[in-house]
Design a protein around this nucleic acid. Structure first.
Lengths: 119, 119
DNA sequence: ACGGCTCTTTCACAGCCGGTTCACGGCTCG
DNA sequence: CGAGCCGTGAACCGGCTGTGAAAGAGCCGT
């Protein structure tokens, strides 16, 4: 696990993250995150714009080495995406790089069409 | 325990707190609080909007380090919540962040919001 | 010192939340 | 088409938190 810098404040787009307080805000709204969700967000934010491998994410957040077949990261990336999208629908933050890992970067969503329910 | 600033007056929403006088008011109504309740409110108010860890709260209000299994904080958070809700039912002040701590922020009670999400 | 009160701490139980795992399905690439 | 990778909803279960009540401690006036 990575130690928290003193009074560290991370900014990624309109996200503001204070690792030592366990606090993350989307604009002026407080995000309600679990411990794992928050750890994942911090790990990604400290490497914003760069791809972070799953093994590295797991080591940073879970504090041990990723076991074969463990899907925890996928699940928590999904949970984080959901909460980030709820707070800021027009932005997409977590990008998948198949076979490599995940990358945190604020990008405008292209999807604002055909929001009229699905079959 | 944290020393009181000279003539310090804290404002959180319609709450007004004077630490050096032991006085807390909800609008124009005086809150009747015990020593512990008041200390807890002051500690939270001085960090309003940010998450305060249980260990920090205990150190600030009780003046010693939180022992494993001590539930005092939970009990007094509950007592404070009850009195604050009695005084200002439409506002929710103390928010729980599971695994992190508590955060003091005035937010309108959920009952006054209209659900516009969830499929 | 005594009795009664309030405040604080502890206890017990219940409910909820979050972490993990499973299962299914879509997608990509060879 | 087959294998691997990823998205996603849901079940399981342990731990954390909410809450009412009992037990213990301190305070106060008489």
């Amino acid at each position: 696990m990575e130690a928290a810098r003193e009074n560290e404040v991370l900014h990624v787009g309109d996200l503001e993250i204070r690792p030592d307080e366990g606090l993350a805000m989307a604009g002026d709204r407080v995000l309600v995150l679990s411990v794992r969700e928050f750890g994942l967000l911090v790990a990604l934010a400290r490497r914003a714009g760069r791809i972070v491998r799953r093994e590295d994410l797991y080591a940073l957040v879970w504090g041990s080495s990723l076991r074969q077949g463990d899907r925890s990261i996928d699940v928590y990336v999904h949970k984080l995406r959901t909460k980030l999208e709820d707070a800021m629908p027009e932005w997409k933050f977590i990008h998948t790089h198949v076979g490599f890992g995940y990358r945190l970067t604020p990008e405008l969503s292209q999807a604002f069409h055909t929001r009229t329910t699905s079959p």
